[in-house]
Design a binder for these strands. Structure first.
Lengths: 360, 360
DNA sequence: TATGGACTTCGAAGCGCTTCGACTCGCGGT
DNA sequence: ACCGCGAGTCGAAGCGCTTCGAAGTCCATA
């Protein structure tokens, strides 16, 4: 390509080149591109032809400078330990893909730059808006977000969500959905194995909300339910399970909301004399990928990472256009039945309906 | 902050504001920031004080426009199926962190935009350079990279690496390291369970190189060695293993280079009557995270994702400064011994040295 | 026939920054 | 006393784009 004619070094084609080639003013080319003023069909065609002929791409910096819009959004990822990476990646992909649909690019910011990073990015006008992931209940970045001149969308819910736009899986209903499923299979005594204790202490909202959904729904069904945190090492898992089974010998259903522990749970149960799903059913709240990869494949409520990412960007774009958007968006959990759940073996396998009626 | 004085709407501080506040010319401020001309210590201090006082951040677009340097690099991620996501994430983090050390930001580009995405990013002068991940042997993006005016670094090796800069784990030596370890434990018959067949067909370089390192090193030790691809479902893994053990009843060492199959291998071996590591030792080539999470914890050669990402960015920065860099950078594998390997139980547990001598 | 829109298009003024040439010192050398 | 020179600073010219006001056309209205 470069060896064509008398192309000077650094053959960046500018809007001026296009204008000259098409025989119009620079501003006309600009208006063809932006559509902000009416341009006759014939002129438009001529300009577009020139653009194609020259392989013109607008200079992003110049455009940002003149229009005060960078057409870039920031994606702030945590990379804190304890986060499950595949889910993050799915988020990220969805965010990028959706952003591209709106003709925006994505700047990747890691949280270890801290609030200063956010401030820098925003103040330098590199980005028009911000998507913030893995928000904690008391997140130091949240107050900053309010001061920033740029719109933002959070994935997750901080304690103080005033004036903020948040998106997340509806963890309450996710916890509930697991109980629904186990109840409908006829289980009468179940337990929730959650995140490590430190996560609860950190006040990460989703852990609490899942537990609430689990506990309250079980209560509604009149099912005996225990909830407890769980560390991620194999020994810890095994110990937790052993204790749990000892205290609740009739336990037949287990909800696991801890991606890292899932494999260990499946490995430990047989060692404790419980076959899955014959003796005990297991439902996980985790990405499909993890559920499918486990042996046996896990019935699971998936974290709809792609939906969340897509929603977040869509909301952000609305805000960029000055539209009003709902402060909270909760996404529906979806439960996929796989090989790890079944009706309890020994028990009377009647299904119990929420109102307490028994279906035979 | 905003409610301070008579701050106008959109309180973006410009270099002009700083200059006025410090009582110097705009160009002086610029030179203080860039260090491209000598500025007296007193002036510099005054300017820096003003910058701090006003909370000035240079406008990225203006800077890019005037200097023709965006201070942004592109990170092109694949998101093709079969890639293990956590590793990607580690890469990404390392890339961002390192880029920040060089005062650059990172634009996230997904491969599904294809070559056009690359072209757009480069032509619009949004980025100064490109880091391309998960390069295939015959990658359609590679020829494009040569035409682009921007420097780039590949992670992985394409078949035709002329004029390109590539970084990767030394998979040959990774395969070799696994054999070294097993041999030193006294194993005499081992096998490699690799990626799904399709990966080999796609000519992904690393799969072939691992196998070569494995096979050739085993030969050097005079150890019986088999290598075969492996699909990722549990049933496939179990079947592969069953066949393998039938054909090679004395097999005592297994190298797994397939992150997705790792868990299944560990689950299937007991079912086939083999305890790990008593009856059979398992070494994996996978991220530490996966190895640690498995039960039992796996002896593994880790993919040094962080090093690779760091190296890639460092090389790119050198290229941006016009320096010459080596075309190929291979990173050393590191093997971590965990619970999944031991001397073979029944066998004579002598250690064999590479030269054929036997150590008792 | 004058008049005023609609419809198109043009020219020029920036956006905030970098960079180049030029200017002003003060100093050592002769 | 003069020149030359380096150090420090300034002013102005863009970088490539958007956008505003205005100008030119053409046709329908009064």
């Amino acid at each position: 390509m470069t060896e064509h004619g008398g192309a000077k070094r650094a053959d960046m084609v500018t809007i001026t080149d296009v204008a000259r080639h098409a025989g119009v003013a620079v501003s006309t080319v600009s208006y063809v591109l932006s559509g902000k003023r009416a341009i006759s069909a014939t002129t438009r065609q001529r300009v577009l032809a020139s653009i194609r002929a020259l392989g013109y791409h607008p200079n992003a910096g110049a455009r940002a400078l003149a229009s005060k819009r960078a057409n870039v959004i920031a994606l702030v990822l945590p990379l804190r330990s304890g986060m499950h990476l595949p889910v993050l990646m799915q988020f990220a992909t969805a965010v990028v893909t959706t952003a591209r649909q709106f003709d925006h690019d994505v700047l990747l910011v890691t949280a270890d730059e801290g609030p200063d990073g956010l401030r820098r990015i925003a103040a330098s006008a590199m980005v028009d808006g911000i998507v913030l992931m893995d928000v904690e209940m008391h997140d130091p970045r949240v107050p900053l977000l309010r001061d920033l001149e740029r719109p933002s969308v959070l994935i997750g819910f901080p304690a103080e969500a005033e004036n903020l736009t948040c998106v997340d899986l509806d963890f309450y209903r996710a916890g509930a959905a697991c109980v629904d499923h186990l109840a409908s299979l006829g289980h009468r005594e179940i337990a929730l194995l959650g995140a490590p204790a430190v996560v609860y202490e950190r006040d990460t909202g989703f852990a609490h909300r899942t537990r609430a959904g689990f506990t309250e729904t079980a209560e509604r069904y009149g099912i005996a339910a225990t909830a407890q945190p769980c560390e991620e090492s194999f020994d810890a898992v095994r110990q937790e399970l052993a204790g749990l089974l000892e205290r609740h010998p009739d336990l037949t259903g287990l909800v696991v909301h801890n991606e890292a522990a899932v494999a260990h749970v499946l490995a430990a149960l047989p060692l404790l004399g419980r076959q899955v799903p014959h003796d005990i059913s297991v439902v996980a709240i985790c990405p499909d990928e993890v559920a499918e990869r486990a042996s046996p494949a896990l019935t699971s409520v998936l974290i709809p990472a792609e939906d969340v990412g897509h929603q977040a960007v869509t909301l952000l774009m609305r805000k960029l256009e000055g539209q009003q958007v709902p402060a909270a968006t909760l996404l529906d959990p979806r439960l996929t039945v796989r090989a790890s759940t079944a009706a309890p073996a020994a028990a009377d396998s009647a299904a119990i309906l929420p109102d307490g009626a028994v279906m035979r």
